[in-house]
Simulated scan of single mutants.
Amino acid sequence: MDFLQLAGKRILIFGVANRKSVAYQTGKVLEEAGAEVIYVVRSEARRESLSKLLKHAPIFVCDVEHQQEIDQLATDISQQYDVIHGLVHSIAFADYSAGWLPFHQTPRAAFLQAVDISCFSLTALSNAFSQLLDPEQGSVVTISISTTRMAAENYGYMAPVKAALDSSICFLAKSFSNFSKVRFNAVCPGLLKTSASAGIPGYVDSYLFAEKATLRKEAVQTREVADTVAFLLSPRSSGINSQGIVIDAGMGTNYFDKEIVSEQT
Rank of each mutant, 00 (worst) to 15 (best):
V83R: 13
V229E: 05
R10A: 01
K162P: 01
F60V: 01
R46D: 07
A45C: 00
E48T: 09
D205S: 14
K258T: 01
A230C: 09
L192N: 08
M251P: 02
G199R: 09
Y157D: 02
F179R: 15
R149D: 09
I247A: 05
P58V: 11
D134T: 08
V229F: 10
K9A: 10
T228N: 06
F231E: 02
D166M: 04
P58A: 05
Q80E: 08
K258R: 05
G202E: 09
S118Y: 12
V140M: 04
I117E: 03
K55N: 08
I117K: 10
V29I: 15
A249G: 05
N127W: 14
G138H: 10
L4M: 14
A57K: 13
T228V: 11
L112D: 11
H104N: 04
R183N: 01
S167I: 09
G86R: 11
L54W: 10
H85S: 07
Y157S: 07
G138I: 10
F3I: 09
K52V: 02
Y155L: 12
I91N: 09
I84W: 06
S238L: 06
S97T: 13
Y39T: 01
L73Q: 04
I200G: 00
A151E: 10
N18P: 00
F3H: 07
N127G: 04
A249F: 03
A94D: 00
